[in-house]
Amino acid sequence: MAMLEIEHLNTYYGHIHALRDVSITVEKGEIVTMIGANGAGKSTMLKTTSGLLRPRTGTIQLEGEELTRLAPHTIVTKGVVQVPEGRRIFGQLTVMENLDMGAFTCRDGGRIQKNLDRVFDLFPRLKERSKQVAGTLSGGEQQMLAMGRALMAEPRLLLLDEPSMGLAPVLVDSIFDTISRLNNAGTTILLVEQNARMALQVASRGYVLQTGQIVLSDSAENLASNEMVRRAYLGE
């Protein structure tokens, strides 16, 4: 059974038909990427999956369990955790308090500590800054915090919305490196990106989204060598 199975999803903003009959599958253990230009509907897709937006029609299932129309905070408890576009960390809370919020659904102190050790292991920088107010972190550190915060919620499926946006090239490499490491450690990932080049390097499969519709779906290698993808998304 697929980790995530989305079928015939249609999401609207008032009269704007933002997702048109989108169907995607993410298998357990995969990194799947969804690439598309600005405004294609990538964020809409993740928001619908997380329950922030209600689809008009269609279904979303996590390992066969129905997620469609559940409240966002309930979907988190099922193991679907999103790192939203633009990081959205709590700027007035400390780094540690942000991580506490990631662990909000977990009431087991021992497990929280274990997850915290793992996050600090992955991002030693966050440990150094744990008492600092998060709004004072640099962009790269904020992205680390946003990911660390999501990991505190023990995701089975991690949804990443443009994690490389606005980061310097060195940091972009390190974020994608982290994504691979998380996946190797067993987290299934759905990665939404405008940076198609990097996304297709770490992902095994990909979808191309254009004005709310899936126009291509293939293995990452095939997509990277696809003529249309090369022209439109890899700038070749």
Binding site: H73, P84, R88
Partner: peptide
């Protein structure tokens, strides 16, 4: 802390469960 988080960003808070 959750109340303070909600004061800052409701959507991000709900994404934290």
């Amino acid at each position: 802390k959750a109340i303070r988080a909600v004061s800052e960003d409701k959507e991000a808070s709900s994404l934290m469960g």
